[in-house]
Computed example of a mutant assay.
Amino acid sequence: MLVPNNTTNDQPAFIFIGIPGLETLHIWISIPFCLLYFMALIGNSILLVLVRTEQSLREPQFYFLAMLALADLGLSLSTLPTVLGTFWIGAHQTGLDACLAQMFFIHTLSSVESGILVAMAFDRLVAICSPLRYSCILTNRAIFCLGGAAFIRGAALLAPLPLFLRNFSFCRDNILSHSYCYYPDLLTLACGDITFSSAYGLVFVLCTFAVDALFIIASYLKILTTILRLEASDRGLRSMQTCACHLCTVLIFYLPLISLAVMHRYVHGTPPLLYATMSNIYLLLTPLLNPLVYSLKSRQIQTALQRRLWVQRVTAGE
């Protein structure tokens, strides 16, 4: 049984339990986890290299995709130490400062990714509804501003959360439901009046993910009405195909996120195994599936990847 040690530098220690009931299999579970992390890191790195080096991908939608890949890389690297530490080498314990730092990066990068998804929806909205003004609206400056705004919003709104938690004492078992530090999970372990901190967390969710989701829905409703008014059906089909990758990415990101948030706030008595499963789906599959979706759905990325591989073969042959 894991017993927290609260004597390290007079700071509370937090315990990651991994997957409850499967502790004896953690070393075997670490094998697919390592593979998933490796694939996510390689896939997103390849996307970044392609957008950086291929002239055919110098378009706003692929610049936003590169930002998304960068956020996914950050999410993977933020959770990798504790997830693999828990399952691979049995390092179940972490200190308060390390836990708060990890929590800040996870939530900030999740907010940034949500903001980038909004920017990608705006890109598709302009491309389909105002194609003649596309290059005038989505300039390099506009792209930089949208990406910067997503980062600043996430960092600014998340900055108070670690400060809130540092003001609490932790007098319980300090056993976390996930393999990483998650704000609602930490808040349930705090002793004292957490009403304001909990309310701020809810306001953060509403001001970021809820607002972003509403904007994405409104954008695609506008896109759909525009496509239905198009005279040529094949043109409408091509327009929808350009949105397919983004819609898949939106679903991959929001469905696990919403499910995990609902379970923490409104579903009591949820089995720990379900918590562990949903949390790992949220932060493992999202960075993994995003590059796969775009690689399989986007012909431009497929062509760029094939060209890149062909150049490497020719260079190796010489």
Rank of each mutant, 00 (worst) to 15 (best):
L161K: 13
E113N: 10
H92F: 08
L109V: 07
L146T: 10
L132A: 14
I106A: 02
R133E: 15
A127I: 11
L125T: 08
H92D: 01
L138F: 12
L163V: 15
M120T: 06
L84V: 00
A98R: 14
T86C: 07
H107S: 11
R166S: 05
A149H: 03
G115W: 07
A155D: 05
T94C: 04
V112A: 07
F104V: 01
A121W: 13
G147Q: 09
F164K: 04
A101K: 11
A142C: 12
A91T: 07
A119F: 00
C129I: 08
Y134S: 01
G115I: 02
S114H: 03
L132R: 15
G95P: 00
G95I: 08
A149V: 11
V112C: 12
L138C: 11
L157D: 00
C145E: 08
G148F: 07
L117E: 01
L158S: 14
C136I: 11
S114A: 09
L132K: 15
D97F: 07
V126F: 00
D123Q: 09
R124G: 00
I128M: 10
F87R: 00
P131F: 05
L158P: 03
I143N: 09
I143R: 13
I143C: 08
V83C: 06
V83L: 11
F151R: 06
V118H: 08
S111Q: 05
G154K: 02
A150N: 06
I116A: 04
L96S: 05
A98Q: 14
C99D: 04
P162W: 05
L109G: 04
T86V: 06
C136H: 15
P162H: 02
V126C: 05
L161M: 15
H107I: 01
T94A: 10
L138W: 04
I128P: 05
L138H: 11
I89L: 11
M103F: 06
A155G: 04
A159C: 10
V126H: 04
I106R: 02
T139D: 07
F122Y: 13
L146G: 09
L161S: 03
H92Y: 09
A155Y: 08
C99T: 14
L96C: 00
L161Q: 12
I152T: 15
L165Q: 05
S130D: 14
M103L: 08
V126T: 06
F122T: 03
F144S: 14
S111V: 12
A159P: 02
I128E: 09
C129L: 10
L125S: 13
L84T: 01
R141S: 04
E113I: 07
L138N: 09
A101S: 12
A98I: 07
Y134N: 08
L125I: 02
A119P: 00
F105W: 15
G148D: 11
G90R: 02
T139W: 04
A119K: 06
A91C: 03
F144A: 15
I106Y: 00
I116C: 07
L109C: 06
